[in-house]
Amino acid sequence: MPRVIACFKYSIDASELRIDPSTRKPVVEGAKRKTGDIDKRAIEEAIRVKERTGWTATGLCVGPQAAREAAREALAMGLDEVYILSDPAFEGSDTLATARLLAAAARKLGDYKLILCGEMALDGLSAQVGPRLAELLDLPQVTYVRKLSVEGEKLTAERDLEEEYEVVEVELPAVVTVTREINEPRLPSLRDILRASKKPIVYWGAGDLEVGADVVGEKGSKVKVADVYAPEVKRKGVIIEEKPAEEAAEELVKYLLQEGVLR
């Protein structure tokens, strides 16, 4: 059976990330994680492609064991199966190592027609894994897609660029990265959630994938994080509340004059 694959990341939820006030470093340990909203669109789009083509919809996620939570949600939305690529040896993977793991998993699954990724992940925002995966699998890439359709072996997609929309066609298989606008992800019902509990979540570790131990994980990563800090936001926070609009506006203008930002 041909496959549509959705890649997603069990990302750190930056909006809930705590910053240690003394070191100004984000507290990553134990931070809340979830599937980013753009990745969720990749999952939703894979389900829509499955509904139109009858292909198997497979999820791929490089992440910790706890990514099971994200996998459950993706299955409840409508994916048929999720593979979590998880191994202590994969930890610290940069974008290249992550793409290598995904490529190895896609090869092992076989018969992939369409690989969908979010334009960027919620935490890293690197926007690299899609194009890297395309290169590793020697596939064409179509990025920033806000609309797509699959007919037979042909994909038509509309790309959102700075100055224009670009409509392209490509023979499948291909790697596509999607934007936030491509769809509105469905909210699974209780019935969907119950039904999904029977669907497979499979863990693949180092022994399951044909990828060299020296090219994945921290050891196999070219780019490392030397330092992370959260710059302090020094804003004045003067909030004018419960005043008539005229009064509030005049007060604001007074402040802006003091700041010297009105000409």
Binding site: R235, G237, A245, A249
Partner: peptide, 25 residues
């Protein structure tokens, strides 16, 4: 939370009022 100055209110009232206040200033 990231604003230097804020007005809690209906923008449809605040913006015209702000325009007047800026004009005056």
């Amino acid at each position: 939370k990231v604003a230097d100055y804020g007005i809690v209110g209906d923008l449809y009232k605040v913006i015209p009022a702000l325009k007047n206040a800026v004009e005056k200033a």
